[in-house]
């Protein structure tokens, strides 16, 4: 059985809190906010979602602030991806095909995952077939808490294989641990290690060498409280860091749920900067820290977007805009 390092919860919480003490000002703040915007997986995961809602979200993601050039004198970045239910992938594709903004689809019986494996795998194949670039799967928490770790790993491998398109290229997989249900940081670390290894095994089967497919581990569905927290994200980043140091493979990180303010997003970026200082070759443009790019770090959020825009507008104009000055999606 996999031996994961233990985590001392008290000190991990203290370390996570220390990142919130950094004071991010002026130029650093502006750069951090632009980066956070480009790292967004702009998300809607409601039972009432419709194709029209998905299309509106895609437009918002492509051009988050329509008056940016007029008001701020710059074109702000698009978000990284739009995250929707599988039924809405086709609608997103109408708008996003060829734009560089990815389509992320939740799958595998999101958010509970309490369906037969065959159903979950069909869910993945359908979403990939409809054009999803990224698949956000949920792990089987019941199996995890019952100690059936091999079963978890096996299911992740199956899902990852189902992410392979006919052309042989993999849709990127994000494994949602649903840390709010795992409860302890020891469990978070173990689940992270299981997911990271399982994904790498399928890459190895397919002959993909390091750094590997940029797959992710992700904290939460957003349907369970608590969702993303700083200590949980720290522990997951440490698992990703240790895996890189051991194998040279790069895995992405996506905290999701509960990150609503620009300030919170900056705290997470501080954590990324100060935890993932690994001098990775090929990433000199970000001082060797791949997790300071949208390729390896994402925020799963919806309301965060407009708060980032509001703060950017304040930094550039010295005035706070009203909430209604920013379009809803």
């Amino acid at each position: 059985m996999l031996r994961s390092p233990t985590v001392d919860a008290v000190m991990a919480q203290e370390r996570a809190a220390s990142f919130t003490k950094r004071s991010i000002k002026s130029s650093a703040k502006l750069a951090g906010l632009r980066l956070a915007l480009s790292m967004l997986d702009l998300t809607t995961l409601e039972g009432k979602d419709s194709p029209e809602k998905a299309r509106a979200l895609c437009r918002k993601g492509l051009h988050p602030f329509e008056r940016d050039e007029a008001m701020l004198g710059e074109r702000l970045p698009s978000v990284a991806a739009i995250c929707v239910y599988p039924a809405l992938v086709a609608a997103c594709r109408e708008i996003l095909a060829g734009t560089g903004v990815n389509i992320a689809s939740v799958a595998t019986g999101f958010p509970s995952g309490q369906y037969p494996l065959s159903v979950r795998l069909d869910d993945v194949r359908k979403a990939v077939g409809d054009g999803a670039d990224e698949i956000d799967m949920v792990i089987n928490r019941g199996a995890f808490l019952a100690g059936r770790y091999d079963e978890i790993a096996q299911e992740i491998r199956e899902v990852k294989r189902a992410c392979r398109r006919p052309d042989g290229v993999f849709a990127h997989l994000k494994v949602i641990l649903e840390t709010g249900e795992l409860e302890t940081l020891d469990n978070v670390r173990r689940a992270s290690d299981i997911a990271i290894r399982a994904m790498a095994e399928v890459d190895a089967e397919a002959g993909i060498d390091a750094p590997g497919t940029p797959d992710f581990i992700k904290t939460s569905t957003g349907k369970v409280q608590p969702a993303a927290t700083m200590p949980v994200t720290l522990v997951m980043l440490e698992a990703i860091r240790d895996w890189y140091l051991e194998t040279g493979r790069l895995v992405g990180m996506k905290p999701a749920g509960g990150i609503r303010t620009a300030k919170q997003a900056l705290h997470y970026l501080v954590m990324v900067k100060e935890t993932m200082n690994l001098d990775v070759p090929g990433f000199e443009h970000v001082a060797g820290n791949p997790w300071l790019t949208p390729h390896y770090f994402r925020f799963g959020a919806s309301t965060l977007c407009n708060d980032i825009l509001r703060q950017i507008a304040w930094l550039k104009t010295g005035r706070y805009q009203a909430g209604y000055d920013f379009s809803e999606a």
């Binding site: 950094r22 004071s23 991010i24 000002k25 002026s26 130029s27 650093a28 703040k29 750069a31 951090g32 632009r34 980066l35 480009s38 970045p77 698009s78 990284a80 734009t99 560089g100 903004v101 990815n102 670039d133 290229v169 993999f170 990127h172 890459d203 993909i208 750094p211 590997g212 497919t213 940029p214 970026l269 900067k273 200082n277 000199e284 443009h285 970000v286 001082a287 060797g288 820290n289 300071l292 790019t293 949208p294 390729h295």
Partner: peptide
């Protein structure tokens, strides 16, 4: 496999790994 095209490359401020401005 390995990269996706993402519309917005990180800003130049990141070449030094996101330097904190004086506070």
């Amino acid at each position: 496999n390995g990269t996706t095209t993402i519309a917005s490359p990180p800003a130049a401020e990141f070449a030094s790994g996101w330097t904190y401005a004086p506070a």
